[in-house]
Design a binder for these strands. Structure first.
Lengths: 229, 229
DNA sequence: GTCTATATACCGATAGAC
DNA sequence: GTCTATCGGTATATAGAC
């Protein structure tokens, strides 16, 4: 089992990389052209957004709050995003992309279904730990999205779940897993993984590390899947 | 296993009862004195709040939205709650109270730990199904509360979890359950129960009923708890 | 590229007629 | 008890100086 710190160093994108990717992806609506300047300020914006999101939620956060906390003026902020809603979208889109990429890359290194499931669970937990502000933001903001964006958020939920469903079905087909309700198990795994980043305070209070939690989840699910063997 | 419809009819409070309880509990700040009138309008307010909460979130909802949807004027609304934040609190407080009361009452009818656990899980799922708008509201609004209220929401989370923890520990003590990590299992149960009302669209899409989900969760958890016997 | 100053709109809340 | 009309405050967003 890869220690979390090792994973974070090698596999998780840094805030700097994330900001560069966001800028790259939204060149059309960002008027600042020097990448070095843009990245530096985007990092301050993201930090401030995540901090304010944790304190009071994105909805309640005003652009004046964001201006104050990031150190950029109201006018300057609008050089980095065309409006408050678009800022939200820019952040969400990137977070979802990383999740899929990293988990699939890691799970792809295994062939044995049980091992693949273990790695997928661990990777999801580790990534959500490394990019916790992202995950928390993505989940919490799902409630106040437009119809169109809510639809996308639902698809994202199913996309992640599908990764686990594929692994489970593969294991059932090969005879490694014994489980009649694969789709419910996949949903359960997703729910339990979400709990880690949504209720971090709870686990922190109990002194549970992400490695311990990963071991528990893998053990709990695996023991059920291989019950009769 | 009690069918959901049976439970709903016998155990769950109706919207009318809920509104009467809310009015009773907040007499001091509600200026409308005729109970029949107050209940009728409070029902329209609650319906509108839950509807708008689902559409756009409580934060984004304006009192003008609420006025339009409920059919009451801005001025009239203020006869039923002293302000937007207080309206939120009034609703949350009641929802939490029902959860605890109903689950403890139902689980109290059993003595066998396995049976008690089964009933507690079923009751939580059934109640969250019957009062889904409440549960969804309570969960979603936990993110944008004041520090003081967030603290209360955290305590509520732990309160529900404690109910399951107590049952698990009782079962371990009596030798009915074999489980070294009771607190993690309790947290897992809570997370999975939450998924039902937070992601109803997902389960609806898959055609899963609350009875099926309850059976799955009870089975999944129980099989793990009695693994070596 | 970043700032200050301001336009425009809408918020929560209240006063007072009916 | 419920309404309409309106207050004061603050939001997002922009214009134009530097």
């Amino acid at each position: 089992m890869l220690p979390f710190q090792e994973f974070k160093k090698r596999m998780a994108p840094s805030i700097e990389i994330i900001c560069r990717d966001i800028i790259q992806e939204n060149k059309g609506v960002i008027s600042v052209k020097k990448e070095a300047v843009a990245v530096k300020n985007m990092m301050r914006i993201l930090d401030a957004v995540f901090s304010l999101n944790r304190e009071k939620g994105f909805e309640t956060m005003t652009l004046r709050d964001l201006s104050r906390k990031s150190g950029l003026s109201m006018g300057a902020l609008y050089s980095y995003f065309p409006g408050k809603e678009e800022l939200r979208s820019m952040i969400l889109r990137r977070g979802v992309a990383y999740t899929r990429e990293v988990i699939l890359a890691q799970a792809g290194t295994c062939t044995d279904p049980a091992e693949k499931l273990k790695v997928a669970i661990e990777t999801h937990l580790y990534l959500s730990e490394a990019l916790r502000p992202f995950f928390y933001f993505a989940y919490m903001e799902a409630s106040s999205l437009s119809k169109r964006e809510k639809r996308r958020a639902m698809e994202d939920e199913l996309t992640t779940e599908q990764i686990f469903l594929d692994i489970l079905e593969e294991g059932v087909a090969s005879g490694d897993f014994d489980c009649p309700e694969v789709d419910l198990v996949a949903a359960l795994i997703k729910a339990v993984l979400q709990d880690w980043y949504l209720k971090r305070w709870k686990y922190k209070r109990k002194g549970i590390t992400v490695e311990q939690y990963a071991r528990f989840v893998v053990g709990f699910v695996s023991s059920r899947l291989t019950l009769d063997r």
